[in-house]
Amino acid sequence: MKKIKFGLITSLTLILIVSGYILVTKSHQSISSTTYNKDSSLYIDFVDEKLKHIVYEVNLKKFKEKNLLKKDLKDYPTSAYSKKDKILYFTEETRNKDQQLFQQELYKNMYKKRKQLTYNFNYVDFLRLDDHRNIIYMRVLLDSNDRDFHVAKMDLNTKEIKVFNKENKNNSVVWFDYNPKTQQLLMINKSIKEEAKNINLSNEKDQPLKAPKYTATIFKEKDNSTKRIFSAHKFIDSAALSPDGEKILFSWKNSIDPEASSTISLFDIQTKKEKVVLKDSKELINVHQPLYSKGGNGFYFIADLNKVIKNKTTNTQMHPSTIKFFDFNSNEIEDVWFKENGTPINIYL
């Protein structure tokens, strides 16, 4: 079995996924909705076949899309859009080869000059915006030697930055979500030391890599309290906090193999019970990145279609990706958005 290197299961793995899933085919899109369109718009970080990062605003009522940003892809693509101020926040590599937070004002479809907001981080990705309070949350690496991701927040009015758990050196943030309504910050963490130990054992014994312990924690900003929700030895890649703050959806696998079976589970914080909601099927594989609708009646997610398309340019095979919606009441999956000339990477409301 090929030896596993430590760095390959951090954010760089996501970059390989982005570049590996790009499709070079004729552009096509489809949007349909019956239940979920009480949400006004869905925002999508999309990477096309020319390795351009495009931010789409998809109107879920009129079934129209709008291009908010298009730029070269240099690292993991992520963004957050302020409807109130018409400002798009995104990450971008700088001349110093670090990745920082930027903003760009959008007015009458005309791009204004981009403005850099952070300077002292080594790396920034995964953005969540509290549009009402003018606060943006981000996942960061503090310096070039840092191997633990943290969550930081910036007050967009004062530009003051706070890093959560700054001194913690063995509790890296894998994913996080923020609920503006309840002011709860959900963090999924893993032990870097345990991960390194598991990688060494896997290489030494030539056996599959075991997942380190992943822990879900909720921090309440209103009273500065922290609560540990659950722990699991599963490769958790994304999670979402329900609108009422009482449930967590998370996507996971038992293996780091890209072709391994995927699952989306629901965890009830009050009863402490986990329930499998969605798994790979004959139609969909690699189900991941659940996103609650604002009404909490279901969730959006990204998945790959269970079919293979050949890339004539690179002579490789890959699965096209799509965005779907799962309705809790009917347990049915609905189409949301699909475009063949690239891959949706992140989604947010």
Rank of each mutant, 00 (worst) to 15 (best):
K3I: 08
I4F: 03
K5E: 15
L8F: 00
L23E: 08
T25M: 02
S30I: 15
I31R: 02
S32Q: 13
T35V: 12
N37P: 09
D39K: 00
L42M: 01
Y43P: 00
D48T: 06
E49G: 06
H53R: 01
I54F: 05
E57T: 05
N59W: 00
K61F: 08
E65C: 03
K66F: 06
L68D: 03
L68Y: 10
K71E: 13
D72M: 07
D75K: 09
Y76R: 07
Y76K: 11
E92Q: 15
D98M: 07
Q99I: 15
Q100N: 11
L101V: 14
E105A: 12
M110C: 03
M110Q: 14
K115I: 15
Q116E: 14
F121E: 08
N122H: 15
N122G: 05
D125Y: 14
F126A: 10
I135E: 14
M138S: 10
M138Q: 15
R139D: 11
R139P: 12
V140H: 04
L141V: 09
S144E: 07
R147Y: 09
D148C: 09
D148W: 00
A152N: 09
D155Y: 12
N157T: 12
V163S: 01
S172T: 13
F176I: 13
F176R: 01
D177Y: 05
Y178L: 03
N179A: 04
N179Y: 04
Q183P: 02
K190N: 05
E194A: 13
N203I: 11
E204S: 13
P208Y: 03
L209I: 09
L209Q: 03
K210A: 00
T215C: 00
T217S: 10
N224I: 00
K234M: 07
A239K: 08
A239E: 09
S242D: 07
S242M: 10
K247I: 01
K247H: 06
K247W: 01
F250V: 08
F250Y: 15
P258F: 05
E259M: 09
K279W: 06
K279R: 13
I285D: 04
I285L: 11
Q289E: 06
G298F: 08
A303I: 09
D304M: 08
L305E: 14
N311I: 05
T314W: 03
N315V: 02
M318G: 04
H319I: 10
H319R: 13
H319Y: 10
I323Y: 03
F325G: 04
S330F: 02
N331R: 13
D335H: 10
W337Q: 05
K339E: 09
I347S: 10
